[in-house]
Amino acid sequence: MKLQQLSLFLENRPGRLEAPLSAIAAEGINILTLSLADTAQFGILRLIVRDWEKAKRVLEQAGWVVNLTEVVAVDVLDRPGGLAEALRILEDADLNIEYMYAFSLRRGDKAILIFRFEDPDRAIQVLTEKGLHVVDGEELMSFVP
């Protein structure tokens, strides 16, 4: 159920984002979604790709520092309060969210969010018990055109 996310260290200056993205594009690797966290001096680029093993290899050989992190993709209803409901469940269960970002594609009336939890296994268990749908890697790929 968990997804493998690649994190890259980047300096916060013009043009730094383009190089790693070009490097994986040159290998025909499509990015499913990404997010960027930054401070004044540096940032972290987080990527979800179809073939993360190949992408990791390509990026490392080109000299980037790549970290592998497990994240969880969750379906929420794409209407007001949809996300709040999911967050309430997580809060009630005392699950810590380190960060989250939205997946770029929607499916029907659902939006997909990517969560980084302190304890992803327990998060999956709680979310599933409460009737939320945790999207696994294969399913995620299936609705990418």
Binding site: Q5, S7, F9, T39, I44, R46, V65, T69, E98
Partner: peptide, 15 residues
């Protein structure tokens, strides 16, 4: 230069 040993996907860790 940041190395794999010290990079952890966490902004706080880097700071």
């Amino acid at each position: 230069e940041v190395t794999p040993e010290v990079f952890s996907d966490s902004i706080r860790g880097l700071e």
